[in-house]
Amino acid sequence: MQPVSITAYTATTACGVGRSALLQALTNRQTGLRPNDFGPSPLPTYIGRVQGLEEQALPEAWSVHECRNNRLAWLGLNADNFLEQAKAAVARYGADRVGLLLATSTASIGASEEAYSRLTEDKRFPEDLRRSTVHHPHSLGDFLGRVLGTRGPCLTTATACSSSAKVFAQAERLLRLGVIDAAIVGGVDTLCGSVLFGFNALELVSPEPCRPCDPARRGINLGEAAGFALLERDGAPDAPRLLGWGESSDAHHMSTPHPEGLGARLAIEAALARAGLSADQVDYINMHGTASQKNDEVEAGLIARMFPATTRASSTKGWMGHTLGAAGIVEAVICLLALEAGLAPGCLNSQSLDPVCGPQIRLDNEHAPLRIALSNSFGFGGNNASLVFQRGQV
């Protein structure tokens, strides 16, 4: 696999809007989690809610796409000058030669929930929500395709929590095959009742801030986020690169990982093979690390078996929660920031490590020269993806 340049990237999370806010939160170990205040009957948990999203509004030209998910997409798209850089790429290559590869696990389902809660007497959606564009899984792609003016492949991926890691693999394949010359990849997911109460029904939601890899962990905190990246075949030497990707689908169980981490191992091995690297060349691993009992046990054990003690590993979900379909790209951005800043984040909120953890998993942040980072995203149903990134030349 020829490395692909990442010429622009951004993320908006509960830690703030854009890369600087995220890096500052990581460096200062400041969490964006807060007691749940979402919805008319909030569950007793913590959430990663993007501050001020309710005060945002789409420009009038895009009002037909108005919903929480698309508002967050617009907020994230305008951070770090990303919208301008993406439009410049469309102008440079031509609208037909730029792919738009997006990911979400819930799309704009929050708007559909609201519509059903406000049915009229004749059982119709209220007039302000009779907009088909916000009631289908491709709502995000439809909105952003119009905003960016792309006419190349436009795909929406929904493979649960691996969704916005898989778009990097899709982009590399399309670039390598010559179908496109550049790809805008992204992931956006917002809080909604279906997600909060659905995960609560699975007994996976923690009543306290999540504690990845801690023996006293009690489950996940849900969050919302938007992240985007621009991928091109060639970039400046100082641009970071996607060196490899790996995907697998072990289909072991609807919501529980394979007990030996078979699918996760296959994804990691494939990513390293495409990158032409061995496990001992990885400097930092951003774990999927949801703080659920089984995920952390299986993933930590796999890392202990596959990687040397010198590799640093952590879960960063203690900062913004589990952002589901946006988790892959948010944690890819964290890896890129880690490489750029020479910062390996630890596991925020965690006080000790589960005995299954090896020496790779760290509680505290560490400053070190990092060259290679691996990001893991493992979704329900055994949808697994791993990405390998390399720091740009300095």
Score class of each variant (00 low, 15 high):
residue 304 A to F: 00
residue 116 Y to H: 14
residue 337 L to K: 01
residue 40 P to Y: 04
residue 287 M to T: 09
residue 257 P to H: 05
residue 123 K to R: 13
residue 37 D to C: 02
residue 209 P to W: 10
residue 251 A to R: 04
residue 148 L to K: 01
residue 128 D to N: 13
residue 196 L to R: 11
residue 56 Q to R: 13
residue 243 L to V: 06
residue 292 S to T: 15
residue 362 R to F: 06
residue 140 L to C: 04
residue 60 E to Y: 11
residue 63 S to Y: 11
residue 39 G to E: 04
residue 324 L to T: 14
residue 27 T to F: 03
residue 357 C to T: 05
residue 298 V to E: 02
residue 237 P to I: 05
residue 320 M to Q: 07
residue 359 P to N: 07
residue 265 R to S: 15
residue 341 A to I: 01
residue 122 D to M: 02
residue 6 I to G: 00
residue 307 F to T: 13
residue 245 W to P: 01
residue 143 F to L: 02
residue 129 L to H: 06
residue 163 S to F: 03
residue 274 R to V: 01
residue 339 L to I: 04
residue 278 S to V: 09
residue 55 E to P: 00
residue 382 G to S: 08
residue 27 T to H: 11
residue 325 G to D: 11
residue 65 H to Q: 03
residue 189 D to E: 13
residue 91 A to I: 03
residue 165 A to V: 08
residue 180 I to S: 11
residue 251 A to V: 12
residue 24 Q to I: 08
residue 323 T to D: 01
residue 149 G to C: 02
residue 102 L to M: 14
residue 156 T to E: 14
residue 150 T to M: 05
residue 45 T to H: 13
residue 238 D to A: 06
residue 181 D to R: 12
residue 220 I to M: 14
residue 238 D to P: 00
residue 153 P to R: 09
residue 21 A to P: 05
residue 366 E to D: 13
residue 184 I to G: 03
residue 12 T to A: 00
residue 283 D to W: 09
residue 50 V to E: 04
residue 67 C to P: 05
residue 250 D to K: 03
residue 202 L to G: 06
residue 187 G to F: 03
residue 285 I to D: 02
residue 117 S to L: 14
residue 353 L to G: 07
residue 265 R to A: 15
residue 72 L to N: 08
residue 208 E to P: 06
residue 189 D to V: 11
residue 315 S to T: 10
residue 94 G to C: 12
residue 230 L to Y: 01
residue 247 E to T: 13
residue 136 H to T: 07
residue 134 V to H: 02
residue 371 R to K: 13
residue 122 D to N: 12
residue 347 C to P: 10
residue 174 L to I: 10
